[in-house]
Amino acid sequence: MPMSATAKAHYYAAHAQTLREHGAMNASRPWPRRRIGRPRPTVPGPIPAAPAPPARYLEPVMAGQDEDLVDVDPYAPAEPETTIPVFKLLCAPSGYATKRQLRAMGLRRSGQEPVAEVETRGPKNGLLYDIAKARPVRPLTLAKEYALDKATAARQTCGTCGRRYFFVLPTSLKSCLECHGGTPVDPAGYIAPPAPAAHRLAA
């Protein structure tokens, strides 16, 4: 049954008085407050695409680009790589030899590149050279022998006492063991320095 206007007025007045007592609404507003919450997230629409530039600006820039592009590998070798055969240990042919074997024959490789490899017991393979392309070793002249002896003497001579030993002195000490730590050395293991020349001029 529908309510009359007087009944509605009494109903709203009683409801407003109840809410006013609980402090849920303002006295000047005869209806309850709306629930205030977080705003609903809005779903963004699709991003409009950027307008394409006019074709007249791209024609001079992109003209002939496909013909000029070349695929270049910066790590590619300048010359084509060649592979050489690898033989098992003690299975190399008779026409090949290592540097040490060539030296035992009195030959040198004469700048030729290795033609093959041979497996060894170590981590690296031995390089083989063609014996037919090898040349005789250059003879050792007096000048070369003097230069080698001078270089060897610099490594065997003590800078403190001047003795020349028959072995290479350690470079970390820069002297012999006797001068560095007082360890006695066998006199048969070195050559004594020459005695200074006597003064023979008249006083």
Rank of each mutant, 00 (worst) to 15 (best):
T157E: 13
T83R: 06
D71M: 04
H180K: 06
V61C: 05
R103A: 12
T6L: 03
T120K: 07
A192N: 05
F167D: 13
A147H: 07
C179W: 05
Y190I: 05
M25L: 13
A154I: 04
R35D: 11
Q65G: 08
S172P: 00
P48L: 14
P39F: 03
G181N: 07
A16T: 00
Y12L: 05
L140S: 15
P170W: 02
A104N: 07
A195S: 15
P77K: 04
P41L: 00
A153C: 12
P53Q: 07
S4A: 09
C176G: 11
S94I: 15
V115M: 00
Y129K: 10
G37A: 02
A134D: 08
K144T: 15
A97E: 02
I84A: 03
G23S: 15
T152K: 01
G37W: 01
R103W: 15
K99G: 04
K133D: 11
L69C: 04
Y96L: 03
S94E: 10
L142G: 07
P77L: 00
P44D: 08
A55L: 11
A63T: 05
H15A: 15
L173A: 08
H22D: 10
Y75C: 09
G37E: 07
A198C: 02
P51C: 10
G182A: 10
C179E: 02
P60Q: 12
P32E: 10
V118C: 11
F87H: 01
P53D: 09
P123H: 08
L89T: 09
I47N: 05
P196V: 05
T82S: 01
A104I: 03
D130N: 07
K124G: 00
Y146G: 10
R29L: 13
A27D: 14
Y129C: 03
A143D: 10
C176A: 11
A55F: 02
K150W: 14
S28D: 09
Q156H: 14
Q112T: 13
G182C: 11
E67F: 02
I131W: 02
H180D: 13
E117N: 03
A195L: 07
Q101P: 00
E59G: 05
A97S: 14
Y96N: 02
S110R: 14
A154D: 15
R109M: 03
A151D: 09
R40S: 01
E67S: 13
R33A: 11
I131G: 03
V137W: 03
G106A: 08
C176F: 13
T98Y: 02
A192R: 02
A49Q: 03
G111A: 07
R38L: 10
A92T: 03
Y190H: 14
V72P: 00
K8W: 05
E59Y: 01
H10P: 01
T157R: 10
W31N: 12
L69F: 14
R38S: 01
S28N: 10
A195F: 02
R20C: 04
G45P: 14
P114E: 12
T6S: 06
M3V: 15
D71G: 14
V115Q: 04
A52H: 07
T183E: 02
T141A: 06
P193I: 06
H10R: 15
Q101N: 00
